[in-house]
Design a protein around this nucleic acid. Structure first.
Length: 569
RNA sequence: CGGGGCGUAGCUCAGCCUGGUAGAGCGCACGCUUCGGGAGCGUGAGGCCGGAGGUUCAAGUCCUCUCGCCCCGACCA
């Protein structure tokens, strides 16, 4: 491709709204343009990278016997009503009406459509298992789209769905897909981990996320030092925390703690560790008051709590509701003497804690020397603590390290959630009807490309990993008014193309500085410069974007060298 | 949705507080010079100052409403 006739316009300046590197660089390098919040045009350069990724995806999914089809983006409301998600999915679902007033939505995911398809075509266990995928545009009306392609509202996703006669068969496909995902991200040249994950609104029993490691990632992940355990913090469990040293059981007593609502203040005032304080948070869970006792230096994991309580709405209680539960202002709640009907959950982190400090359910007052089983007893012990780096790993081997990641893939075992709701049944060998077991497997195409950039850039621009690079080679004709240079560059361009190399030829009539800056910005892996100076010696310059080490090569050997470099990387 | 902020040239922004002829840099077009790390000089095109209403002799500037966008939180590929 000749740059002079390509649709590729780089910019020196960045739109003010680009926050993260991938967004900034994708705009500057002419890959994307914003049309509206979270809605982007993919320019030719971006589309080429997408193509690289989708080729890899198709190749690897084929190995997992996953078959491609394509479903409509617009879906009738009926199907969503049948699965129950029309009312559950909330505002993220973009609902539309046709001219007859019939309701539709723009598909954010395709469980309903595929389940409807399969229930009509598949009848027998003999036809199972089936694993189907598509690569298609989705729309989710995100509350807050941001970071360019990292969290758009319209985005391209590869989504796959599998159908099974048995749980074992589902297990097999799930494992095959997990392996395929590992191969895909490895083939992309990305630093990633797969982690245990919460299954969220999609539902189902088991799920794993694929995280590209990046400081700007929106997800927090913990991993044990030996690598045997890795999980999203939303889901992560830890080994038991060591208990602070404690002496004999004391008698409890009240102390006045004026205006001390923060654990840190109370601990400092009483000269105890924060770990010796039990903090009690009052939640409003679907209008029911729930108190959660947790160690003072730890945070509650709202996702775990929500899952445990199995409620729709979970928020910290308002001041008024806190008063209802505790009879005191916010900041002095404790497990002792809560109002009738308030459910008290205690996190495992405070189990076995002796002589602890807690709110007295009275303004400006705390209790010290409190012990479980004596002054207070929770109705249930639960694990609702947010794991963090430094915590003991579950199973007792080493500790957890914490890092951030970009979620680029998520696979779920759905079980029979959708097949039951939508009567997607099959007949077994005895002619008995059962709902099919299902799995679903998502992979963000644009997001993976953005994540690849997030992991591979420097001050000057993108550093494409070869497998995802829009072109393999950038050929620069440095002096376009020098006939010799133009002639040689042209010849090299043609030869490279004949050899099947994906080459972008910068034949623009621009000054060298501009071309070099643009070369660094768009970051193609291999650069070949044909300039008057080196051509006098019969040489051209070849360098890799990653290390920028320039080597001079005789014109006649240049193509060979390029082929060799591409093969080696 | 709650909290904060911004809409002025294609892009980045100044001008608004204190109302009085709409600006700069980059980009774009043309000319000359230049040509291995975003060139210099000159000339030029480009604006319903997001939109509607109001106050005023006069509104980019003040007021009200509205639309859009961004940042911080709860959501997710």
């Amino acid at each position: 491709m000749r740059w002079s006739s390509y649709y590729l316009f780089t910019t020196r300046e960045v739109p003010a709204d680009a926050e993260v590197a991938s967004h900034r660089l994708m705009v500057r390098s002419g890959m994307i343009r914003k049309l509206a919040a979270g809605i982007y045009t993919y320019l030719p350069l971006a589309l080429r990278s997408f193509g690289k990724l989708t080729d890899i995806v198709r190749r690897e999914l084929a190995k997992a016997d996953c078959i491609e089809l394509s479903m409509p983006a617009i879906q009738p409301a009926q199907l969503w009503q049948e699965s129950g998600r029309w009312s559950q999915y909330g505002k993220e679902l973009l609902r539309i009406e046709d001219r007859h007033g019939r309701e539709f939505c723009f598909g954010p995911t395709h469980e309903e459509v595929i389940t409807d398809l399969v229930r009509n075509d598949v009848r027998s266990y003999r036809q199972l298992p089936l694993n189907l995928f598509q690569i298609q545009t989705k729309f989710r009306d995100e509350i807050r789209p941001r970071f360019g392609l990292m969290r758009g509202r319209e985005f391209i996703m590869k989504d796959a769905y599998s159908f099974h006669a048995t749980e074992e068969s589902l297990d097999q496909s799930y494992k095959a897909m997990a392996a395929a995902y590992n191969r895909i991200f490895k083939a992309c040249g990305l630093d990633f981990v797969s982690v245990e994950a919460d299954s969220g609104t999609i539902g189902g029993s088991s799920s794993h996320e694929y995280m590209v490691v990046a400081a700007t990632g929106e997800s927090v992940v913990v991993r044990s030092s030996d690598g045997s355990y890795a999980a999203n913090v939303e889901k992560a469990v830890t080994g038991p925390l060591p208990l602070p040293a404690a002496g004999e059981e004391e008698t409890s007593r009240e102390v006045v703690t004026p205006a001390m609502t923060a654990v840190s203040d109370v601990a400092a005032f009483l000269e105890v560790e924060e770990a010796q304080v039990v903090k009690t948070l009052i939640y409003d869970a679907d209008e029911t008051l729930v108190a959660v006792a947790i160690r003072g230096d730890r945070e509650v994991n709202d996702v775990k709590l929500k899952n445990f309580l199995d409620v729709e709405d979970l928020v910290l209680a308002s001041e008024e509701r806190v008063r209802e539960a505790t009879g005191s202002p916010v900041g002095f709640a404790g497990p002792v003497g809560l109002a009738e009907g308030v459910r008290l959950l205690a996190d495992e982190s405070v189990r076995g804690l002796k002589n602890f400090v807690c709110g007295a359910n009275r303004g400006d007052t705390h209790l010290v020397g409190v012990n479980w089983g004596r002054e207070a007893e929770p109705s249930e012990w639960v694990d609702v603590r947010l794991a963090r780096g430094g915590d003991p790993a579950p199973g007792g081997q080493g500790e957890l390290e914490e890092f951030r990641g970009i979620e680029v893939g998520h696979i779920f075992k759905l079980g029979t959630k959708y097949s039951e709701a939508m009567s997607c049944n099959f007949l077994d060998e005895e002619g008995k009807s059962h709902p099919m077991a299902m799995g679903c497997y998502g992979l963000g195409i644009g997001r993976t490309i953005a994540a690849a950039i997030e992991q591979n850039y420097d001050d000057d621009g993108i550093i494409w990993p070869l497998p995802l690079a829009p072109f393999q080679v950038l050929l620069i004709a440095l002096n376009t008014n020098d006939e010799e240079v133009v002639g040689q560059a042209d010849a090299l361009y043609n030869t490279l193309r004949e050899k099947g190399v994906e080459v972008l030829f910068d034949d623009r009539n621009q000054r060298p500085g501009v071309k070099f800056k643009d070369a660094d910005l768009i970051g193609l892996p291999v650069r070949m410069v044909v300039g008057a100076r080196s051509l006098k010696e019969g040489q051209v310059e070849i360098s890799l974007r990653r290390d920028r080490e320039r080597q001079m090569v005789a014109v006649g050997d240049a193509v060979e060298r390029i082929l060799h470099l591409l093969e080696a990387s």
